[in-house]
Design a protein around this nucleic acid. Structure first.
Length: 190
DNA sequence: CTATCGATTGTCT
DNA sequence: GACAATCGATAGA
């Protein structure tokens, strides 16, 4: 008998046209590559349309325009004037912030971009992973199911840990931060 | 290990 | 003018 092989699910518009909390949970364990660099998503947070902590709260603006585009786009914004951060757009005005990856592919290039060799610190934070994968404002509004992005998930669920979102000053108690259980590559312990 | 603090600039009021 | 979905350095337990 042959072992059953894991099934690979391409993440398309249908996948993202749902509540961002559900999408965030299912993105844990998925593989994200940008131009051949990346790894496994081990941490993500959901931001909703009626969520005071979300950039979309208060309506559409110049910066958050992609959050109101079709599901499956990238929403990339500059944080603290320094760090780029990557989101996947879900239902209009909602998105999932990708907070950490376990590096798997193109590690030497990611090390060069980050200027460090420590694998543990390569992609363990939203700003860090964007620097490692070469993501910047030019990727804002780009579809995640086309080059340079490659996003796919092995069917089946990954063991999750849940916590409160990090680094915000409103709606701080919502348990919309999700991580891969036991992962050494999250930005902070749960 | 935890706590604190400065950097840096686009965005919105 | 205030603030920010962060990071890295530093100081101290």
């Amino acid at each position: 008998m042959q072992k059953s092989e894991p099934k690979i699910q391409k993440l398309d518009q249908v996948f993202f046209q749902r509540n961002a909390v559900e999408v965030a949970k299912e993105l844990i364990g998925a593989e994200l590559l940008v131009g051949g660099t990346g790894g496994i998503i081990v941490e993500a947070e959901a931001y909703l349309v009626d969520d005071p902590a979300s950039h979309s709260f208060g309506g559409r603006s110049l910066r958050n325009g992609s959050m109101f585009g079709p599901p499956g786009l990238a929403y990339v914004y500059l944080s603290y004037g320094i760090h780029w951060c990557l989101n996947t757009v879900c239902l209009p005005g909602s998105a999932v912030l990708i907070r950490a990856l376990e590096p798997r592919t193109g590690i030497s290039l990611m090390q060069a971009r980050r200027g460090i060799s420590n694998i543990r610190l390569l992609c363990s934070g939203p700003g860090r992973l964007c620097q490692a994968l070469g993501i910047d404002g030019g990727h804002d509004g780009a579809p995640l199911n086309r080059q340079p992005f490659a996003l796919r998930k092995v069917t089946g669920s990954s063991p999750l840990v849940i916590g409160k979102r990090i680094g915000i000053s409103r709606a701080m108690d919502e348990p919309w931060r999700f991580g891969l259980q036991e992962s050494n590559f999250v930005s902070r312990k749960f």
